[in-house]
Simulated assay, not measured.
Amino acid sequence: MQELITTAEYDIEHLISQIAGQLAPSSRRVYMSDARHFAEWMKTEGLTPHTMTRVDMSNYRLHLADSTYAKATKQRMFSIACKLMREQKLNGRIALDVTDELRGFKVDTDETTHTALSKQQAKDMLAIDTSTIQGKRDYALLSLLVKTGIRRSEAVALNQGDIRMMDGHHVAVIEHGKGDKTRVVKLRVEVYRAIADYLAILPTAGKLAPLFVRILRGDHPTSSRLTDKAVELIVKK
């Protein structure tokens, strides 16, 4: 088993480094993270890129389907795993395309909250008690969704370091947005202030720390990233 794991690590790291060189720097962080998630799954299953079959790829898809990731994230992660395995085929390391005819995840096209609300509905949604950490988080999150139009999956994928200053404007850098592209979203003053107010009382800080985190009963924030499903429930409150 140790030999299998060592081989898997070597092969996948070699593939990752090859493909990462073809990507824009802004895309590499997410790509590397997703590729290593796939590598860890292979290690757990006692597999290597050489021994992967179409059934194994289907099982990896089931693994993602059972996870709490947003659909867009599942689709991105599965696409990257498929790309890695297709590279194996192109390089002559495996004989068959183990991704052939495997379907990804259908991503909702109406995840944005921006266009679905009237001004009054948006105002009502933002009528939140901000005296608690959870209230500050929800207000910052909903302000971001309502006033920028970014998708729920994009909001939960943000890290604290993705909120930054560019050319004199506060912005949110969406590293892996619609169409698998990086984009920069300008933040209105009130949106940035809501986010800054929320971040000021979070115990966990760091550029790679999740921006929006789960909060336990008693108003205790965790270091775990909020899920797309949790955001959907917050929006529907």
Rank of each mutant, 00 (worst) to 15 (best):
A81M: 12
H63Y: 15
V235S: 06
Y198G: 05
A127Y: 07
R36L: 10
A65I: 01
D56Y: 02
T51A: 09
T130W: 04
S118D: 13
H14I: 03
R214S: 05
K106H: 12
A72E: 08
T132H: 09
V191C: 07
T7Q: 15
I234E: 11
V185A: 09
R151S: 06
P49A: 04
R76C: 06
Q134G: 12
Q75E: 15
E101A: 12
H114N: 10
M32D: 04
N159D: 13
K89M: 15
H220G: 07
I12A: 08
T115H: 09
K207Y: 08
I19K: 07
L64K: 03
I174H: 01
R217I: 08
N159I: 03
T222R: 09
K106F: 10
A209M: 12
H63Q: 11
A127Q: 13
W41R: 05
L64Y: 04
V173C: 12
A39S: 10
K207I: 05
L158K: 00
K236Y: 10
T73H: 05
R36H: 10
I16C: 03
D100I: 13
H169T: 06
F212L: 11
R188S: 10
D162T: 01
I133W: 12
Q22E: 14
S26L: 00
S131N: 12
L90N: 14
A140C: 01
M42P: 02
R193E: 15
E232I: 07
A140E: 05
G206Y: 00
K83L: 15
M77D: 09
D167Y: 07
E190V: 12
K71M: 15
L141P: 00
K147M: 12
T148M: 04
P221K: 06
M52H: 02
L145M: 02
V146W: 00
A200T: 08
E40Q: 12
S224M: 13
A205K: 14
R188C: 01
S143D: 02
T222I: 08
G218Q: 08
E190L: 11
R86P: 03
S118P: 06
L47V: 01
K136S: 03
E111C: 04
K181H: 05
K71T: 14
G21F: 01
R183T: 07
L102V: 03
R86F: 02
A20M: 04
S27Y: 03
D56S: 08
C82N: 09
P210I: 02
K74I: 00
L64A: 03
S27A: 14
P203R: 06
I5K: 15
L142C: 03
G206Q: 05
Q75V: 08
G177E: 01
A8F: 01
H50K: 12
S153I: 04
Y192K: 11
V235R: 15
D110H: 11
Y69P: 00
I19Y: 08
K83W: 09
L187E: 06
L23M: 07
G161L: 10
R188T: 07
A140T: 00
N59V: 08
T73L: 06
R93K: 15
L84N: 05
G21Q: 10
Y192Q: 05
S79N: 14
R217F: 09
T53Y: 04
T182G: 02
D167T: 08
R193W: 10
E190A: 14
F78H: 13
M1N: 10
Q160N: 03
V231A: 12
L96F: 09
L23R: 14
S58K: 11
A194D: 10
V171Y: 08
T6W: 06
Q121S: 11
A122L: 05
D97M: 04
